[in-house]
């Protein structure tokens, strides 16, 4: 039995979105937990649970996100024939970037990062943006398949029907810049970050 690329892509996207909802809620919860005073509900056990849930959710999503992107590529028949599809590519890339940074930060710094307020805010903001980008990409999927999306009810939203198209040479230049900056950051900056005790 074979499953169509579009069906497979939908299943993968649902896993990604579900995991990311959990990861985002728990990441924001971890930040809130450190801002709000301790109480019967806001205790260390809840903090540890949310931290682990956000890590598990984001790692799971990060594993399935490339599969969702690749299956989406196959489902789109290797075409970017509309602004919606072009934007789906771009938002998927942004989601991948935000989630990767979230996971890198959490794994390198450990649960101790939530004890440092600036890092905790950065981490939960990263999760928030990552979720926003993932939601945009999946919302475009709904627009393409059903012609409507749950986000249609919001009066303001990020652009989806118009795209800032880059010529191939500009995209490739941007990619080279991205590869170079990542290499530099991984070589020189990342070793400065370690587990916070």
């Amino acid at each position: 039995m074979m499953v169509g690329a579009a069906t497979f892509h939908t299943a993968m996207a649902e896993i990604v979105v579900g995991s990311m909802v959990l990861a985002t809620l728990c990441a924001v919860g971890c930040s809130m937990s450190r801002i709000l005073p301790s109480s019967e509900i806001n205790n260390e056990s809840l903090m540890v649970t949310m931290d682990r849930a956000s890590l598990a959710g984001s790692v799971l999503a990060l594993i399935f996100l490339p599969i969702a992107i690749l299956s989406g590529n196959v489902a789109a028949d290797g075409q970017a024939e509309s602004a919606l599809l072009y934007n789906k590519f771009v938002y998927s890339g942004l989601a991948l970037g935000f989630w990767s940074a979230f996971v890198i930060g959490r794994i390198r710094m450990g649960p101790g990062l939530w004890e440092e307020r600036p890092l905790a805010i950065l981490q939960s903001t990263t999760a928030g943006f990552a979720f926003l980008m993932t939601s945009m990409a999946s919302s475009i999927g709904g627009k393409l398949v059903r012609g409507e999306s749950l986000f249609d009810v919001f009066p303001f939203w990020l652009p989806t029907e118009t795209a800032a198209i880059l010529p191939l040479w500009a995209s490739v230049s941007l990619l080279i810049l991205g590869i170079t900056s990542s290499a530099l950051v991984f070589r020189f900056t990342l070793p400065k970050i370690s587990r916070i005790e």
């Binding site: 992107i69 590519f89 771009v90 998927s92 890339g93 942004l94 991948l96 970037g97 990767s100 880059l166 191939l168 995209s171 490739v172 941007l174 990619l175 810049l177 991205g178 590869i179 900056s181 990542s182």
Partner: peptide, 9 residues
């Protein structure tokens, strides 16, 4: 390329 560039940046 645009997508992966944004991810890496």
């Amino acid at each position: 390329a645009h997508s992966f560039a944004f991810a890496l940046l």
